[in-house]
Design a protein around this nucleic acid. Structure first.
Lengths: 238, 238
DNA sequence: GAGTGGTCTAGACCACTTG
DNA sequence: AAGTGGTCTAGACCACTCT
Protein backbone atom coordinates (compact mmCIF):
# COMPACT_ATOMS: atom_id res chain seq x y z
CA UNK A 1 0.00 0.00 0.00
CA UNK A 2 1.13 3.54 -0.75
CA UNK A 3 2.59 5.51 2.08
CA UNK A 4 0.71 8.66 1.17
CA UNK A 5 -2.60 6.82 1.03
CA UNK A 6 -2.07 5.23 4.42
CA UNK A 7 -1.20 8.60 5.88
CA UNK A 8 -4.34 10.02 4.27
CA UNK A 9 -6.50 7.35 5.87
CA UNK A 10 -4.81 7.91 9.21
CA UNK A 11 -5.39 11.66 9.13
CA UNK A 12 -8.94 11.18 7.89
CA UNK A 13 -9.65 8.92 10.83
CA UNK A 14 -8.11 11.45 13.20
CA UNK A 15 -10.32 14.21 11.81
CA UNK A 16 -13.47 12.10 12.01
CA UNK A 17 -12.40 11.10 15.53
CA UNK A 18 -12.09 14.76 16.38
CA UNK A 19 -8.52 14.11 17.41
CA UNK A 20 -8.09 17.16 15.22
CA UNK A 21 -10.99 19.54 15.83
CA UNK A 22 -12.71 21.59 13.16
CA UNK A 23 -11.26 25.07 12.99
CA UNK A 24 -7.85 24.08 14.35
CA UNK A 25 -4.66 23.52 12.39
CA UNK A 26 -3.09 20.22 11.51
CA UNK A 27 0.58 19.83 12.49
CA UNK A 28 2.84 21.43 9.90
CA UNK A 29 3.97 19.44 6.91
CA UNK A 30 7.49 19.29 8.31
CA UNK A 31 6.22 17.97 11.63
CA UNK A 32 4.03 15.37 9.93
CA UNK A 33 7.01 14.30 7.82
CA UNK A 34 8.98 13.66 11.01
CA UNK A 35 6.10 11.85 12.73
CA UNK A 36 5.47 9.51 9.81
CA UNK A 37 9.16 9.20 8.88
CA UNK A 38 8.57 10.19 5.27
CA UNK A 39 9.58 13.08 3.07
CA UNK A 40 7.56 16.25 2.98
CA UNK A 41 6.35 15.62 -0.59
CA UNK A 42 4.77 12.39 0.56
CA UNK A 43 2.91 14.22 3.32
CA UNK A 44 1.81 16.74 0.75
CA UNK A 45 0.30 14.02 -1.41
CA UNK A 46 -1.74 12.83 1.56
CA UNK A 47 -2.87 16.39 2.24
CA UNK A 48 -3.99 16.80 -1.37
CA UNK A 49 -6.38 13.90 -0.83
CA UNK A 50 -7.74 15.49 2.35
CA UNK A 51 -8.12 18.74 0.46
CA UNK A 52 -9.99 17.18 -2.46
CA UNK A 53 -12.34 15.37 -0.14
CA UNK A 54 -13.21 18.51 1.77
CA UNK A 55 -11.50 17.63 5.05
CA UNK A 56 -9.06 20.52 5.17
CA UNK A 57 -8.35 23.92 3.71
CA UNK A 58 -4.75 24.98 3.20
CA UNK A 59 -3.38 28.48 3.53
CA UNK A 60 0.12 29.46 2.58
CA UNK A 61 2.16 30.77 5.50
CA UNK A 62 -0.45 29.56 7.94
CA UNK A 63 -1.25 25.89 7.79
CA UNK A 64 -3.92 23.31 7.09
CA UNK A 65 -7.25 24.17 8.69
CA UNK A 66 -9.55 21.28 9.62
CA UNK A 67 -13.03 21.77 8.17
CA UNK A 68 -16.39 21.00 9.66
CA UNK A 69 -17.16 17.83 7.85
CA UNK A 70 -20.79 16.97 7.54
CA UNK A 71 -20.64 13.28 6.86
CA UNK A 72 -24.40 12.95 6.70
CA UNK A 73 -24.09 14.62 3.34
CA UNK A 74 -22.68 11.81 1.31
CA UNK A 75 -21.57 12.87 -2.13
CA UNK A 76 -23.34 11.08 -4.96
CA UNK A 77 -20.61 12.39 -7.14
CA UNK A 78 -17.60 10.32 -8.17
CA UNK A 79 -19.14 7.26 -9.77
CA UNK A 80 -20.87 5.29 -7.09
CA UNK A 81 -23.67 2.91 -7.89
CA UNK A 82 -27.08 2.49 -6.34
CA UNK A 83 -26.14 -0.64 -4.46
CA UNK A 84 -22.97 0.71 -2.94
CA UNK A 85 -24.73 3.93 -2.03
CA UNK A 86 -27.64 2.47 -0.18
CA UNK A 87 -25.65 -0.28 1.47
CA UNK A 88 -23.53 2.45 3.01
CA UNK A 89 -26.67 4.16 4.25
CA UNK A 90 -28.15 0.99 5.74
CA UNK A 91 -31.43 1.63 4.00
CA UNK A 92 -33.84 -1.22 3.52
CA UNK A 93 -34.21 -1.70 -0.17
CA UNK A 94 -35.25 -4.28 -2.69
CA UNK A 95 -34.31 -4.80 -6.30
CA UNK A 96 -36.58 -6.38 -8.90
CA UNK A 97 -35.04 -7.31 -12.23
CA UNK A 98 -37.72 -6.77 -14.87
CA UNK A 99 -35.53 -7.44 -17.86
CA UNK A 100 -32.14 -9.00 -18.64
CA UNK A 101 -31.79 -9.81 -22.32
CA UNK A 102 -29.49 -9.49 -25.29
CA UNK A 103 -30.62 -7.26 -28.13
CA UNK A 104 -29.42 -4.92 -30.84
CA UNK A 105 -28.70 -1.37 -29.79
CA UNK A 106 -31.31 1.30 -30.55
CA UNK A 107 -30.57 3.88 -33.23
CA UNK A 108 -30.79 6.70 -30.77
CA UNK A 109 -28.33 5.20 -28.33
CA UNK A 110 -25.94 4.18 -31.12
CA UNK A 111 -25.90 7.78 -32.29
CA UNK A 112 -25.35 9.13 -28.83
CA UNK A 113 -22.46 6.76 -28.17
CA UNK A 114 -21.12 7.14 -31.72
CA UNK A 115 -20.92 3.40 -32.27
CA UNK A 116 -22.29 1.02 -34.90
CA UNK A 117 -26.02 0.38 -35.08
CA UNK A 118 -25.21 -3.31 -35.32
CA UNK A 119 -23.72 -3.32 -31.85
CA UNK A 120 -25.12 -6.00 -29.57
CA UNK A 121 -25.94 -5.14 -26.01
CA UNK A 122 -27.33 -6.58 -22.82
CA UNK A 123 -30.34 -4.63 -21.65
CA UNK A 124 -31.01 -4.76 -17.94
CA UNK A 125 -33.98 -3.07 -16.35
CA UNK A 126 -34.41 -2.93 -12.61
CA UNK A 127 -36.92 -1.50 -10.17
CA UNK A 128 -35.58 -0.17 -6.89
CA UNK A 129 -37.96 -0.30 -3.96
CA UNK A 130 -37.91 1.60 -0.70
CA UNK A 131 -40.72 1.20 1.81
CA UNK A 132 -42.67 -0.91 -0.68
CA UNK A 133 -42.53 1.82 -3.32
CA UNK A 134 -40.61 1.77 -6.58
CA UNK A 135 -38.81 5.10 -6.54
CA UNK A 136 -35.97 4.37 -8.97
CA UNK A 137 -35.96 2.68 -12.35
CA UNK A 138 -32.51 1.68 -13.61
CA UNK A 139 -31.77 0.87 -17.22
CA UNK A 140 -28.36 -0.53 -18.11
CA UNK A 141 -26.93 -1.10 -21.55
CA UNK A 142 -23.80 -3.27 -21.57
CA UNK A 143 -21.71 -3.95 -24.66
CA UNK A 144 -21.57 -7.72 -25.22
CA UNK A 145 -18.14 -7.28 -26.84
CA UNK A 146 -16.85 -6.62 -23.33
CA UNK A 147 -19.48 -8.20 -21.10
CA UNK A 148 -20.71 -11.30 -23.01
CA UNK A 149 -23.38 -12.23 -20.49
CA UNK A 150 -24.85 -11.17 -17.19
CA UNK A 151 -25.84 -13.87 -14.70
CA UNK A 152 -29.21 -13.29 -13.06
CA UNK A 153 -27.49 -13.09 -9.72
CA UNK A 154 -25.22 -10.27 -10.87
CA UNK A 155 -28.22 -8.30 -12.14
CA UNK A 156 -29.97 -8.88 -8.84
CA UNK A 157 -27.03 -7.73 -6.80
CA UNK A 158 -24.38 -5.43 -8.20
CA UNK A 159 -23.41 -5.25 -11.87
CA UNK A 160 -20.27 -3.33 -10.96
CA UNK A 161 -19.26 -5.99 -8.49
CA UNK A 162 -19.60 -8.65 -11.18
CA UNK A 163 -17.61 -6.62 -13.69
CA UNK A 164 -14.85 -5.71 -11.29
CA UNK A 165 -14.48 -8.87 -9.26
CA UNK A 166 -15.73 -11.71 -11.44
CA UNK A 167 -14.58 -10.39 -14.81
CA UNK A 168 -11.58 -8.57 -13.39
CA UNK A 169 -12.16 -5.40 -15.39
CA UNK A 170 -11.31 -1.97 -14.03
CA UNK A 171 -13.95 0.72 -14.26
CA UNK A 172 -12.28 4.03 -14.66
CA UNK A 173 -14.37 7.08 -15.45
CA UNK A 174 -17.74 8.29 -16.63
CA UNK A 175 -19.45 11.23 -18.21
CA UNK A 176 -22.62 11.95 -16.25
CA UNK A 177 -25.60 14.12 -16.97
CA UNK A 178 -28.54 15.05 -14.77
CA UNK A 179 -31.77 16.39 -16.23
CA UNK A 180 -35.48 16.37 -15.38
CA UNK A 181 -37.58 14.69 -18.08
CA UNK A 182 -41.31 14.16 -18.52
CA UNK A 183 -42.35 10.78 -17.15
CA UNK A 184 -42.94 8.18 -19.85
CA UNK A 185 -45.67 5.57 -20.01
CA UNK A 186 -43.15 3.02 -18.84
CA UNK A 187 -42.22 5.19 -15.88
CA UNK A 188 -45.85 5.29 -14.84
CA UNK A 189 -46.20 1.54 -15.26
CA UNK A 190 -43.06 0.51 -13.47
CA UNK A 191 -42.68 3.22 -10.83
CA UNK A 192 -44.88 4.51 -8.02
CA UNK A 193 -44.98 8.09 -9.18
CA UNK A 194 -48.00 9.30 -7.18
CA UNK A 195 -49.12 11.45 -10.05
CA UNK A 196 -45.79 13.14 -10.68
CA UNK A 197 -45.39 14.33 -14.24
CA UNK A 198 -41.60 14.28 -14.29
CA UNK A 199 -38.64 12.20 -13.16
CA UNK A 200 -34.99 13.02 -12.54
CA UNK A 201 -32.83 11.23 -15.09
CA UNK A 202 -29.15 10.51 -14.47
CA UNK A 203 -27.42 9.29 -17.63
CA UNK A 204 -23.85 7.99 -17.62
CA UNK A 205 -21.42 6.75 -20.22
CA UNK A 206 -18.98 4.52 -18.39
CA UNK A 207 -15.45 3.63 -19.52
CA UNK A 208 -12.82 1.07 -18.62
CA UNK A 209 -9.19 1.73 -17.77
CA UNK A 210 -8.13 1.29 -21.38
CA UNK A 211 -10.65 4.00 -22.34
CA UNK A 212 -13.09 1.66 -24.04
CA UNK A 213 -16.75 2.43 -23.50
CA UNK A 214 -18.60 -0.53 -22.04
CA UNK A 215 -21.83 0.77 -20.53
CA UNK A 216 -24.55 3.35 -20.76
CA UNK A 217 -26.83 3.84 -17.79
CA UNK A 218 -30.10 5.61 -17.31
CA UNK A 219 -31.27 5.96 -13.74
CA UNK A 220 -34.75 7.42 -13.34
CA UNK A 221 -35.64 8.80 -9.91
CA UNK A 222 -38.87 9.94 -8.41
CA UNK A 223 -38.61 13.68 -7.74
CA UNK A 224 -38.99 13.54 -3.98
CA UNK A 225 -36.38 10.81 -3.60
CA UNK A 226 -33.61 12.48 -5.50
CA UNK A 227 -30.77 14.34 -3.85
CA UNK A 228 -27.32 15.16 -5.15
CA UNK A 229 -24.63 16.57 -2.87
CA UNK A 230 -21.24 17.84 -3.87
CA UNK A 231 -18.20 19.44 -2.29
CA UNK A 232 -16.89 21.90 -4.83
CA UNK A 233 -13.72 23.94 -4.90
CA UNK A 234 -13.59 27.19 -6.76
CA UNK A 235 -11.49 26.89 -9.87
CA UNK A 236 -8.58 29.17 -9.18
CA UNK A 237 -8.67 31.51 -12.19
CA UNK A 238 -4.84 31.96 -11.84
CA UNK B 1 3.22 31.60 -13.13
CA UNK B 2 3.82 27.97 -12.18
CA UNK B 3 5.74 25.83 -14.59
CA UNK B 4 3.37 22.90 -14.20
CA UNK B 5 0.33 25.05 -14.85
CA UNK B 6 1.84 26.56 -17.99
CA UNK B 7 2.69 23.08 -19.24
CA UNK B 8 -0.87 21.99 -18.46
CA UNK B 9 -2.31 24.86 -20.51
CA UNK B 10 0.09 24.09 -23.34
CA UNK B 11 -0.87 20.41 -23.43
CA UNK B 12 -4.56 21.26 -23.09
CA UNK B 13 -4.29 23.54 -26.10
CA UNK B 14 -2.50 20.83 -28.06
CA UNK B 15 -5.24 18.33 -27.26
CA UNK B 16 -8.03 20.74 -28.21
CA UNK B 17 -6.02 21.57 -31.34
CA UNK B 18 -5.91 17.90 -32.12
CA UNK B 19 -2.14 18.15 -32.25
CA UNK B 20 -2.57 15.12 -30.07
CA UNK B 21 -5.47 13.04 -31.37
CA UNK B 22 -7.97 11.21 -29.22
CA UNK B 23 -6.94 7.60 -28.76
CA UNK B 24 -3.23 8.23 -29.25
CA UNK B 25 -0.58 8.50 -26.57
CA UNK B 26 1.07 11.65 -25.28
CA UNK B 27 4.88 11.66 -25.34
CA UNK B 28 6.27 9.87 -22.31
CA UNK B 29 6.83 11.79 -19.09
CA UNK B 30 10.58 11.59 -19.60
CA UNK B 31 10.30 12.97 -23.12
CA UNK B 32 8.04 15.80 -21.97
CA UNK B 33 10.50 16.59 -19.19
CA UNK B 34 13.25 16.98 -21.79
CA UNK B 35 11.08 19.05 -24.14
CA UNK B 36 9.98 21.48 -21.43
CA UNK B 37 13.33 21.42 -19.62
CA UNK B 38 11.80 20.54 -16.29
CA UNK B 39 11.94 17.59 -13.94
CA UNK B 40 9.64 14.65 -14.38
CA UNK B 41 7.68 15.44 -11.21
CA UNK B 42 6.76 18.80 -12.67
CA UNK B 43 5.47 17.14 -15.81
CA UNK B 44 3.51 14.77 -13.63
CA UNK B 45 1.80 17.67 -11.86
CA UNK B 46 0.69 19.00 -15.23
CA UNK B 47 -0.61 15.56 -16.21
CA UNK B 48 -2.61 15.32 -12.98
CA UNK B 49 -4.49 18.43 -14.07
CA UNK B 50 -5.18 16.93 -17.49
CA UNK B 51 -6.34 13.77 -15.78
CA UNK B 52 -8.69 15.56 -13.39
CA UNK B 53 -10.21 17.56 -16.18
CA UNK B 54 -10.89 14.49 -18.27
CA UNK B 55 -8.38 15.14 -21.03
CA UNK B 56 -6.28 12.02 -20.59
CA UNK B 57 -6.29 8.59 -19.04
CA UNK B 58 -3.03 7.19 -17.68
CA UNK B 59 -1.98 3.56 -17.73
CA UNK B 60 1.08 2.25 -15.99
CA UNK B 61 3.61 0.74 -18.33
CA UNK B 62 1.79 2.14 -21.31
CA UNK B 63 1.36 5.88 -21.30
CA UNK B 64 -1.13 8.71 -21.24
CA UNK B 65 -4.05 8.17 -23.61
CA UNK B 66 -5.76 11.24 -25.02
CA UNK B 67 -9.53 11.12 -24.47
CA UNK B 68 -12.33 12.20 -26.70
CA UNK B 69 -13.21 15.45 -25.08
CA UNK B 70 -16.72 16.68 -25.59
CA UNK B 71 -16.37 20.35 -24.86
CA UNK B 72 -20.03 21.06 -25.56
CA UNK B 73 -20.73 19.47 -22.24
CA UNK B 74 -19.67 22.21 -19.90
CA UNK B 75 -19.53 21.08 -16.31
CA UNK B 76 -21.77 23.02 -13.93
CA UNK B 77 -19.71 21.46 -11.21
CA UNK B 78 -16.83 23.25 -9.53
CA UNK B 79 -18.44 26.44 -8.33
CA UNK B 80 -19.32 28.50 -11.34
CA UNK B 81 -22.02 31.14 -11.14
CA UNK B 82 -24.90 31.86 -13.44
CA UNK B 83 -23.26 34.87 -15.00
CA UNK B 84 -19.94 33.19 -15.73
CA UNK B 85 -21.71 30.14 -17.08
CA UNK B 86 -23.96 31.85 -19.55
CA UNK B 87 -21.41 34.40 -20.63
CA UNK B 88 -19.21 31.52 -21.65
CA UNK B 89 -22.07 30.08 -23.66
CA UNK B 90 -22.85 33.37 -25.40
CA UNK B 91 -26.51 33.05 -24.53
CA UNK B 92 -28.66 36.12 -24.57
CA UNK B 93 -29.85 36.65 -21.06
CA UNK B 94 -31.23 39.33 -18.83
CA UNK B 95 -31.15 39.79 -15.09
CA UNK B 96 -33.84 41.59 -13.08
CA UNK B 97 -33.06 42.40 -9.46
CA UNK B 98 -36.33 42.11 -7.55
CA UNK B 99 -34.87 42.62 -4.10
CA UNK B 100 -31.67 43.85 -2.49
CA UNK B 101 -32.14 44.64 1.17
CA UNK B 102 -30.68 44.12 4.62
CA UNK B 103 -32.64 42.02 7.07
CA UNK B 104 -32.35 39.59 9.96
CA UNK B 105 -31.72 35.98 9.03
CA UNK B 106 -34.66 33.57 9.10
CA UNK B 107 -34.84 30.95 11.85
CA UNK B 108 -34.69 28.15 9.35
CA UNK B 109 -31.59 29.40 7.60
CA UNK B 110 -29.87 30.22 10.89
CA UNK B 111 -30.43 26.63 11.97
CA UNK B 112 -29.19 25.22 8.72
CA UNK B 113 -26.03 27.32 8.82
CA UNK B 114 -25.61 26.83 12.56
CA UNK B 115 -25.21 30.54 13.22
CA UNK B 116 -26.97 33.04 15.48
CA UNK B 117 -30.57 34.00 14.78
CA UNK B 118 -29.50 37.62 15.27
CA UNK B 119 -27.22 37.50 12.24
CA UNK B 120 -27.79 40.28 9.76
CA UNK B 121 -27.80 39.48 6.08
CA UNK B 122 -28.24 41.03 2.69
CA UNK B 123 -31.04 39.35 0.79
CA UNK B 124 -30.78 39.53 -2.98
CA UNK B 125 -33.40 38.10 -5.27
CA UNK B 126 -32.94 37.98 -9.02
CA UNK B 127 -34.90 36.77 -12.02
CA UNK B 128 -32.93 35.30 -14.90
CA UNK B 129 -34.49 35.62 -18.31
CA UNK B 130 -33.84 33.70 -21.50
CA UNK B 131 -35.89 34.37 -24.61
CA UNK B 132 -38.22 36.65 -22.64
CA UNK B 133 -38.96 33.93 -20.09
CA UNK B 134 -37.90 33.82 -16.45
CA UNK B 135 -36.44 30.33 -16.11
CA UNK B 136 -34.23 30.82 -13.05
CA UNK B 137 -34.87 32.54 -9.74
CA UNK B 138 -31.76 33.23 -7.66
CA UNK B 139 -31.85 33.98 -3.96
CA UNK B 140 -28.65 35.08 -2.26
CA UNK B 141 -28.05 35.51 1.45
CA UNK B 142 -24.82 37.39 2.26
CA UNK B 143 -23.49 37.88 5.77
CA UNK B 144 -23.15 41.63 6.42
CA UNK B 145 -20.28 40.89 8.79
CA UNK B 146 -18.24 40.11 5.70
CA UNK B 147 -20.11 41.91 2.93
CA UNK B 148 -21.47 45.11 4.54
CA UNK B 149 -23.34 46.28 1.47
CA UNK B 150 -24.07 45.35 -2.11
CA UNK B 151 -24.18 48.12 -4.71
CA UNK B 152 -27.09 47.84 -7.13
CA UNK B 153 -24.64 47.46 -9.96
CA UNK B 154 -22.98 44.45 -8.34
CA UNK B 155 -26.36 42.78 -7.88
CA UNK B 156 -27.19 43.49 -11.49
CA UNK B 157 -23.97 42.04 -12.79
CA UNK B 158 -21.95 39.53 -10.81
CA UNK B 159 -21.93 39.30 -7.03
CA UNK B 160 -18.85 37.09 -7.18
CA UNK B 161 -17.03 39.63 -9.29
CA UNK B 162 -17.78 42.33 -6.72
CA UNK B 163 -16.63 40.13 -3.84
CA UNK B 164 -13.47 38.97 -5.51
CA UNK B 165 -12.34 42.08 -7.34
CA UNK B 166 -13.83 45.04 -5.46
CA UNK B 167 -13.65 43.63 -1.95
CA UNK B 168 -10.56 41.54 -2.64
CA UNK B 169 -11.89 38.45 -0.90
CA UNK B 170 -11.05 34.96 -2.09
CA UNK B 171 -13.90 32.51 -2.55
CA UNK B 172 -12.67 29.04 -1.82
CA UNK B 173 -15.18 26.21 -1.62
CA UNK B 174 -18.82 25.33 -1.31
CA UNK B 175 -21.11 22.56 -0.22
CA UNK B 176 -23.78 22.12 -2.88
CA UNK B 177 -27.04 20.24 -2.92
CA UNK B 178 -29.42 19.58 -5.79
CA UNK B 179 -33.03 18.54 -5.17
CA UNK B 180 -36.39 18.90 -6.87
CA UNK B 181 -38.91 20.77 -4.74
CA UNK B 182 -42.58 21.63 -5.22
CA UNK B 183 -42.95 25.08 -6.74
CA UNK B 184 -43.93 27.74 -4.23
CA UNK B 185 -46.38 30.59 -4.73
CA UNK B 186 -43.43 32.89 -5.19
CA UNK B 187 -42.02 30.62 -7.87
CA UNK B 188 -45.28 30.84 -9.76
CA UNK B 189 -45.36 34.60 -9.38
CA UNK B 190 -41.81 35.35 -10.35
CA UNK B 191 -41.05 32.60 -12.86
CA UNK B 192 -42.61 31.49 -16.14
CA UNK B 193 -43.32 27.94 -15.11
CA UNK B 194 -45.86 26.98 -17.77
CA UNK B 195 -47.85 24.96 -15.30
CA UNK B 196 -44.93 22.98 -13.89
CA UNK B 197 -45.52 21.80 -10.35
CA UNK B 198 -41.85 21.51 -9.39
CA UNK B 199 -38.54 23.31 -9.74
CA UNK B 200 -34.93 22.15 -9.47
CA UNK B 201 -33.29 23.75 -6.46
CA UNK B 202 -29.53 24.14 -6.16
CA UNK B 203 -28.52 25.22 -2.66
CA UNK B 204 -24.95 26.19 -1.79
CA UNK B 205 -23.10 27.22 1.34
CA UNK B 206 -20.11 29.20 0.19
CA UNK B 207 -16.89 29.76 2.14
CA UNK B 208 -13.89 32.06 1.95
CA UNK B 209 -10.25 31.08 1.97
CA UNK B 210 -10.03 31.41 5.74
CA UNK B 211 -12.96 28.94 5.99
CA UNK B 212 -15.50 31.52 7.13
CA UNK B 213 -18.98 31.08 5.73
CA UNK B 214 -20.16 34.21 3.92
CA UNK B 215 -23.03 33.20 1.67
CA UNK B 216 -25.95 30.89 1.18
CA UNK B 217 -27.47 30.60 -2.26
CA UNK B 218 -30.68 29.12 -3.55
CA UNK B 219 -30.98 28.86 -7.29
CA UNK B 220 -34.37 27.72 -8.56
CA UNK B 221 -34.52 26.39 -12.12
CA UNK B 222 -37.40 25.53 -14.39
CA UNK B 223 -37.32 21.78 -15.01
CA UNK B 224 -36.77 21.91 -18.76
CA UNK B 225 -33.92 24.39 -18.45
CA UNK B 226 -31.86 22.48 -15.97
CA UNK B 227 -28.89 20.36 -16.92
CA UNK B 228 -25.94 19.24 -14.85
CA UNK B 229 -22.93 17.56 -16.43
CA UNK B 230 -20.00 16.00 -14.67
CA UNK B 231 -16.84 14.11 -15.49
CA UNK B 232 -16.41 11.58 -12.73
CA UNK B 233 -13.57 9.25 -11.90
CA UNK B 234 -14.19 6.03 -10.07
CA UNK B 235 -12.87 6.19 -6.54
CA UNK B 236 -10.12 3.61 -6.56
CA UNK B 237 -11.15 1.34 -3.70
CA UNK B 238 -7.40 0.48 -3.21
C1' DG C 1 14.93 -6.11 -21.70
C1' DA C 2 13.59 -1.56 -22.70
C1' DG C 3 10.30 1.75 -21.89
C1' DT C 4 6.38 3.37 -19.41
C1' DG C 5 4.06 5.42 -15.37
C1' DG C 6 3.87 5.20 -9.76
C1' DT C 7 6.19 6.29 -5.65
C1' DC C 8 9.49 8.33 -2.70
C1' DT C 9 13.45 11.04 -1.19
C1' DA C 10 16.46 15.02 0.56
C1' DG C 11 17.23 19.20 -0.34
C1' DA C 12 16.55 23.82 -2.23
C1' DC C 13 14.34 28.33 -2.92
C1' DC C 14 10.21 31.13 -2.85
C1' DA C 15 5.82 33.56 -1.02
C1' DC C 16 3.17 34.26 2.68
C1' DT C 17 1.77 34.81 7.79
C1' DT C 18 2.74 35.85 12.34
C1' DG C 19 5.16 37.43 16.30
C1' DA D 1 13.06 36.46 11.87
C1' DA D 2 11.01 32.12 12.16
C1' DG D 3 7.70 29.12 10.55
C1' DT D 4 4.33 27.89 7.21
C1' DG D 5 2.84 26.00 2.68
C1' DG D 6 4.06 26.17 -2.79
C1' DT D 7 7.19 24.83 -6.21
C1' DC D 8 10.91 22.43 -8.28
C1' DT D 9 14.84 19.33 -8.80
C1' DA D 10 17.75 15.05 -9.82
C1' DG D 11 17.85 10.83 -8.81
C1' DA D 12 16.26 6.33 -7.20
C1' DC D 13 13.55 2.04 -7.16
C1' DC D 14 9.32 -0.35 -8.29
C1' DA D 15 5.30 -2.39 -11.15
C1' DC D 16 3.59 -2.79 -15.37
C1' DT D 17 3.34 -3.36 -20.74
C1' DC D 18 5.06 -4.68 -24.95
C1' DT D 19 8.06 -7.00 -28.10
Amino acid sequence: MNKFYEIYLDLEKAILNQTYHAGTLLPSENDLAKVYHVSRETIRKALVLLLENGYIQKKQGKGSIVLNVNRFDFPVSGLTSFKELHDSQNLKSETIVTKNCIEKISKKLANHLKISQETEIIYVERQRKFNQEVVILDKDYLLTSIIPELPAEAAQNSIYDYIEHTLGLTISFAQKEITVDPATKKDHELMDLNGDTHVVVVRSDVYLEDTTLFQHTESRHRLDRFRFVEFARRRSPM
